[in-house]
Amino acid sequence: MWNKETIAPRAGRWLLAAGLALTLAACSSADKPQLDANAGNAALSGGAGQGGPAVPGSERDFILNVGDRVHFLVDQWSLTPQAQETLRRQAAWLQRYPSVTVRIEGHADERGTREYNLALSARRAQAVKNFLVSQGVAASRISTIAYGKERPVALCDAERCWAQNRRAVTVITGGARS
């Protein structure tokens, strides 16, 4: 007969691990392509309207099929494995369309002070730029800007929103197809 006392903590550990996996899944879903007001200022003109296939080389193609953003852990600017995967796709896409220029917009969540968050979000933008350059994208095609906690995309006062706000977004500034 099984002893419940010895089983319970084990089951607990598995539950915990399952919970962790769920969290990770949630994180990576946040890494998935998404469209929002802050994604870019140009109209999403690539492709036949909303929901249609994106024209290869268009901004819409980049956002939907490559992923325009990566996320960061609390108070961190190092790139997670998922972030590196996204950025490898971005680098490959940027090499396929060499006339495209981009601006990396660094952001922080609201749980920090103003000046530090500006510098932290600058570090995040710089980390993304450095990675893209290491993947062969010319540094001259990439500019960066730091927004600190000034431009959140998710609004709840909980970690699931703050995690989405700790991000660096690659915004196309020119050279994309329409």
Binding site: A37, N38, E150, V153, L155
Partner: peptide, 11 residues
């Protein structure tokens, strides 16, 4: 001075 929604705050 801050006005407008949080995602598009005007400062």
């Amino acid at each position: 001075d801050e006005s407008g929604p949080k995602t598009k705050r005007v400062k």
